[in-house]
């Protein structure tokens, strides 16, 4: 992992200040995104994937906020930017596609105009020129009849087309990093494959890095270069994709992989990880996964594991790998 890092997130902590207490939704996450690579973040629902993304984008809203850590984009610390500076980064150098394609576009403006706005906000061009660029990007993301679609309202487009519009909007300023938060969860499987391929191709062409958030291990295996596995606001395991699948170390990751249905193996029922995700307000004293871990030992309940290097570039947050070098500062 020594390629030039465009986005470096260090020890990010984002908490929600609720009436019931402080919820540590993102609890010391460190992520490195090398130029031109696709980074995956996986984990069960509620583990903090979206909140990590929102924190990086500076989009967390009350009652949530970033309480600690640094976010460095291309050598520049963007953790505490003023609103004006932040707005110059968003949509320009750093962009995001959201989980909900059906509702992420404004219903009262034509989709083309909404994409054009992203260009006009960040670049000095004429409206006509910007429109031409929208048509080009529509073409690139595979929207048929761009000229006609430009003037369509969101409700006139299918979910797949809307998500293509969102990708177009996120790519049109050629960002350094694009965060895609489960961009295909709401779409059907054939469209999912098309969209993922499209994102991969565009990013290769433009040199944009992607953070792909998903809970689909199959998707990860197919397009990610490096993977972070999250659980209860923390990174539990991280490794290059091949390494992670071949030498899975963490019991949680093993559970996740086992729960993928496979065609080549007969099984009576689908494997699921026992138990439920713990309430973030009442996490176990030791390892946050200990309550569901089938390999847990006594000390797992009392001692918090660090992130240990089990192999080159392969980190595991599990006491079994304590002998490895600690990768985070905790």
């Amino acid at each position: 992992m020594n390629e030039s890092v465009v986005l470096d997130v260090k020890n990010l902590k984002s908490h929600f200040f609720t009436a019931k207490g402080e919820v540590p939704a993102v609890d010391g996450v460190s992520i490195q995104v090398p130029a031109g690579k696709i980074i995956g973040i996986v984990g069960e629902s509620g583990c903090g994937k979206s909140m990590t993304a929102m924190s990086i984008m500076g989009l967390l809203r009350y009652p949530g906020r970033v309480v600690d850590g640094t976010i460095t984009l291309d050598g520049r610390d963007i953790t505490h930017l003023k609103p004006k500076e932040l707005s110059q980064v968003r949509g320009n150098e750093l962009s995001m596609i959201f989980q909900e394609p059906m509702t992420s576009l404004n219903p009262v403006y034509p989709v083309g105009v909404q994409v054009r706005e992203a260009i006009l906000l960040h670049q000095k061009t004429t409206k006509a020129e910007a429109k031409q660029r929208v048509l080009d990007i529509f073409q690139a993301v595979g929207i048929p009849e761009p000229e006609k679609r430009y003037y369509n309202y969101p409700h006139q487009l299918s979910g797949g087309l809307r998500q293509r519009v969102m990708i177009g909007m996120a790519m049109v300023c050629r960002p350094k990093v694009m965060i895609a938060d489960e961009p295909t969860t709401a779409l059907d499987v054939t469209i999912e494959a098309q969209i993922l391929r499209l994102m991969k191709r565009l990013c290769a062409e433009q040199g944009t890095s992607i953070i792909l958030i998903t809970h689909n291990m199959g998707v990860v295996a197919e397009i990610c270069d490096y993977v972070y596995v999250m659980y209860a606001g923390k990174v539990m395991e991280q490794a290059e994709t091949f390494e992670l699948f071949e030498h899975t170390k963490h019991p949680y990751t093993q559970g996740l992989l086992k729960s993928i249905p496979r065609l080549d193996e007969k099984a009576d029922r689908l494997y699921t990880i026992e138990g439920v995700v713990p309430n973030l307000l009442h996490l176990p004293k030791g390892c946050s996964f200990c309550t569901r871990c089938d390999q847990a030992q006594e000390r797992c309940f009392t001692e918090k594991p660090g992130l240990y290097a089990a192999a080159d570039g392969h980190g595991v947050r599990c006491l079994k790998y304590e002998s490895g070098v600690k990768m985070d500062g905790e």
Binding site: M57, L59, P83, K84, S87, Q88, V89, R90, G91, N92, S95, M96, F98, E100, T103, S104, L105, N106, P107, Q114, E117, A118, L121, H122, M166, M169
Partner: peptide, 20 residues
């Protein structure tokens, strides 16, 4: 709404989000 988040994410300032 989700599309307000989109507007923020594309780089609009808060007043632009509200007015636009």
């Amino acid at each position: 709404n989700d599309y307000i988040r989109t507007a923020r994410a594309k780089g609009l300032r808060e007043h632009g989000v509200i007015i636009g």
